[in-house]
């Protein structure tokens, strides 16, 4: 029994790590052969050393904190506004039809195009970055919530009507829960968008903190090991946040699995 469990864990680990390990080995071989200039492709050892240096000197912490704070602030602002709005819009077709054009128009605007506008409105501080993240994540969550309401089985609403449930009882006790699987799908998309936009904002809207700032700084000083290290760290953050959200999803909506 125990052996079977160890075997299953080993095979899972092999599935996850086999390809990344092969890629790192190939990268190492490539680097040793000197086929590419070290300025463009430093070896994995140098990148790992740069990453460890970021942590050992504590240089990384204020930047990591700044990025996560901006990212999650924007994400939560979007969540708090978009989920209730999406439930109401999805449930009351007339309200949705009045808002449909405006929603489709606003969500088609590239987030990068509204940088200057938000900088004029909110300044160059964290508020502008959080607002841009909230704006883009909000529409992703909103649309998924609306679809979640539309996709919900109508039988439960009819059931609630046979019990003479009020409109607000139907929304809070039935529709919201039925929409949760789609809401979570939207949240996972939104959290990825939140990380991307936070980093882009940190690179192009004046700041002296954040992982985007570190990436941009490493590039301007041609510190490519540090550049690769921060990019790798960003990939890890995105991966673990997504996995964490999947785990939360499994706990909150186990029936949808």
């Amino acid at each position: 029994m125990k052996q079977a469990k160890i075997g299953s864990l080993a095979s899972k680990a092999a599935r996850i790590f086999a390809l990344p390990v092969c890629l790192v080995l190939a990268w190492h071989a490539f680097s040793l052969a000197g086929w590419v200039d070290k300025l463009f492709l430093p070896g994995p050892g140098e990148v790992l050393a740069a990453l460890l240096n970021l942590f050992s000197t504590s240089e990384i912490w204020p930047h990591l904190w700044a990025t996560l704070m901006r990212m999650f602030s924007g994400f939560f602002v979007a969540l708090v506004i978009a989920v209730p709005a999406g439930i109401v819009l999805g449930h009351i077709k007339k309200v949705y039809l009045y808002c449909e054009f405006l929603i489709d128009f606003a969500r088609s605007i590239p987030a990068t195009a509204i940088f200057p506008l938000f900088m004029i409105i909110f300044g160059v501080g964290d508020e502008a970055k959080i607002a841009i993240v909230a704006f883009s994540c909000g529409f992703v969550i909103l649309i998924n919530t609306i679809y979640g309401v539309w996709n919900a089985p109508k039988t439960r609403i009819v059931m609630a009507k046979t019990l003479r449930a009020s409109g607000s009882q139907i929304l809070t006790k039935i529709v919201f829960f039925d929409a949760l699987p789609d809401i979570f799908a939207g949240l996972r998309n939104a959290v990825s968008i939140a990380l991307i936009l936070t980093v882009v904002c940190e690179m192009f809207i004046g700041t002296n903190s954040g992982l985007g700032f570190l990436v941009f700084n490493a590039k301007t000083s041609y510190d490519t090991p540090k550049l690769y290290a921060v990019i790798g760290l960003l990939g890890g953050i995105g991966y673990f946040i997504n996995k964490g959200l999947l785990r939360v999803e499994g706990k909150v909506i186990p029936w949808s699995r």
Binding site: P153, T155, R156, M159, I174, L180, W255
Partner: peptide
Amino acid sequence: NYREALLPW
């Protein structure tokens, strides 16, 4: 359809 009429949550 009991699956769609009961509340799985």
